[in-house]
């Protein structure tokens, strides 16, 4: 099932917002983060921005095959992930979440339905976790 232009735009917006959340997290927690932790979150933020760029370019034509009900599902998941980043209690959780969103982004760039589904499942599990 293909995505409409509006859905692609909302996905691009959601990835940009997620990257902005990570950027803010890096600023707010700069002193607390180790070099490795900082670099990991920084790399994930860059991946999210790449996805937002690709989605912007393909706002009209991006089609993700094999993903059921993609627009709503993606938007909801990313919105929840953004909320979780804001309220996360541990750095580990933020890194896991950022990594899972980045994997989702990688799947979207590669148009690989399997890795998209896996990434969505990971994100859902992390959101559901209590930490």
């Amino acid at each position: 099932m293909g995505l409409t232009t509006d859905e692609v735009r909302e996905i691009a917006d959601a990835f940009l917002e997620a990257a902005n959340k990570l950027d803010q997290y890096l600023k707010d927690n700069d002193a607390k983060l180790s070099h490795g932790q900082y670099q990991l979150i920084y790399e994930h933020a860059r991946t999210l921005l790449r996805v937002a760029t690709v989605a912007t370019t393909e706002a009209v034509g991006l089609v993700i095959e094999g993903l059921k009900d993609p627009g709503t599902k993606l938007k909801d998941v990313i919105a929840q992930a953004n909320e979780k980043i804001k309220t996360a209690a541990t750095v580990g959780l933020v890194i896991n979440l950022a990594g899972a969103i980045a994997s989702l982004g990688g799947g979207i760039i590669a148009k690989d339905p399997n890795s998209i589904v896996t990434a969505l499942t990971n994100i859902a599990n992390i959101i559901a976790s209590k930490s």
Partner: peptide, 27 residues
Amino acid sequence: DIVDNDFRRDLKIEQTFIDIYYDNLRK
């Protein structure tokens, strides 16, 4: 729509890229 949504988002993506890139460089 293209100008308001896509061009504007495109520049905001660049804005975040600039922000994190130079912050990381400074760090």
